[in-house]
């Protein structure tokens, strides 16, 4: 459901900065269904790529061979991402706070003596800064959705509505947060992430219980449309169940 929800946020003609995992699957699904003219861009430098299978890594040969053009790393960040040319960016997270700030650096302990060291920033910090809109994809629990995160690797809304402007970040910030329980969107005034949609058969109390801050619920809470047969068929074809 996270993958399908992510795919549905992409509109035909959008440009999308994609990562490996759910973002890739969602982008390929969107391109195969409702958004054939979606432009996929990977940080490895592949622009308008058309993978026919799931890439194994961000720089998979499949991405280079099916791309309109391949550019260098400084070019992808300096010419394409930084000026705000790319519409949507997908971001994963180990921890998220109520302003959509993200931690992918470490969990527990201190920066110098972490309990669990994570991979770090990669392209995420600048995607969070410069894409026009970003979509965060993260499983929701009290371990991941926290009042205070251990480290801010990528900025969402900082400490509120005025932070992004003061940091010189040109994108709008996280406009959608997709979880396994529902969808959160920033409150138009406070920028605090608010539950606006819930997946079918999920209880609102369960979402509240899985959130580390006092979660606000939209007055117009909707239920997401379950995956269609077409979406499920395509996903099974793209990602056949692993033989154990």
């Amino acid at each position: 459901m996270m993958t399908v929800s992510a795919a549905r946020t992409l509109k035909n003609g959008d440009s999308c900065f994609v990562g490996i995992g759910i973002p890739s699957t969602a982008a390929i699904l969107a391109k195969a269904t409702h958004a054939p003219d979606l432009v996929l861009i990977y940080e490895s430098g592949t622009i308008d790529t058309n993978p026919t299978r799931l890439p194994l890594s961000i720089g998979d040969g499949e991405l280079a061979q099916t791309a309109l053009t391949v550019v260098s790393i400084p070019e992808i960040f300096n010419y394409w991402l930084q000026p705000g040319r790319i519409k949507i960016g997908f971001l994963g997270a180990a921890q998220v706070d109520k302003f959509g700030n993200i931690n992918t650096t470490f969990i527990g302990g201190t920066y110098k003596n972490p309990t669990v060291r994570l991979p770090g920033a990669g392209g995420a910090t600048e995607i969070a800064g410069a894409c026009q809109d970003t979509t965060i994809i993260c499983r929701q629990s009290t371990r991941t959705f926290l009042e205070k995160i251990d480290f801010i690797t990528s900025v969402g809304y900082g400490s509120g509505p005025n932070s992004r402007k003061s940091y010189g970040l040109i994108g709008n910030g996280p406009t959608t947060v997709i979880t396994d329980l529902g969808i959160l969107e920033p409150d138009p005034d406070s920028c605090e992430l608010t539950l606006t949609k819930i997946h079918q058969n999920v209880d609102v109390d369960a979402v509240i219980a899985a959130t580390g801050w006092k979660l606000k619920i939209s007055k117009d809470l909707e239920v997401t449309t379950p995956p269609t047969d077409q979406e499920l068929l395509f996903l099974r074809k793209l990602n056949p169940p692993k033989k154990s």
């Binding site: 960040f77 800064g129 932070s163």
Partner: peptide, 26 residues
């Protein structure tokens, strides 16, 4: 960040003491 480190190389390659990016703030 990727942009930060790639621009450290870029400054090195172009013979300048630093490169400028919009990033890291916040």
């Amino acid at each position: 960040t990727h942009a930060g480190l790639s621009n450290r190389y870029l400054a090195g390659a172009t013979g300048l003491p630093f490169a400028v990016i919009r990033g890291y703030q916040g």
